[in-house]
């Protein structure tokens, strides 16, 4: 049993746990920054499953899975940056960094630069 516990077997389980943990945070927390962090943690769990499966066995790891993960990290940081920009914009318009039910109510003056 111990012999079969190479990183390629162990880490995908960790990745699955990270994904579920991130999903839990995404559902439970309301603040958008925390939700963005939760999505990032879910993504890291997916990367861990990918890289873990790629590293299984004694052969060199699968470079296609690693290349896809590299692409995924860059896409994740781009999407995170855009989500953070949207969060700041929402806070500027409404004063809250949480999603409110109903139509967007602007109750602060819009930013002077947005006229």
């Amino acid at each position: 049993m111990i012999e079969s516990l190479d990183p390629g077997t162990l880490y995908p389980f960790g990745g699955a746990a990270l994904f579920a943990l991130g999903l839990h945070g995404l559902i439970r927390r309301r603040h958008l920054i925390l939700r963005i962090l939760a999505v990032n943690i879910m993504g890291s769990g997916v990367f861990m499953v990918f890289l873990g499966i790629a590293a299984r066995g004694n052969a060199p790891p699968d470079p296609v899975a690693q290349a896809l993960t590299l692409t995924g990290i860059v896409v994740a940081v781009s999407a995170t940056a855009f989500a953070l920009a949207l969060t700041v914009h929402l806070a500027r318009l409404t004063g809250y960094a949480v999603l409110l039910p109903g139509p967007l109510q602007t109750h602060r003056d819009s930013h002077p630069d947005d006229r």
């Binding site: 699955a16 579920a20 839990h24 559902i27 499966i53 470079p63 899975a65």
Partner: peptide
Amino acid sequence: ITLVVTVGLAGLLMATLATQEHDPGLQP
């Protein structure tokens, strides 16, 4: 309910990963 759903999801994912056959992938 959130705890049950996410722990159940983690268990399902792990069960799927445990049954997965080893595959050398595209490395060769």
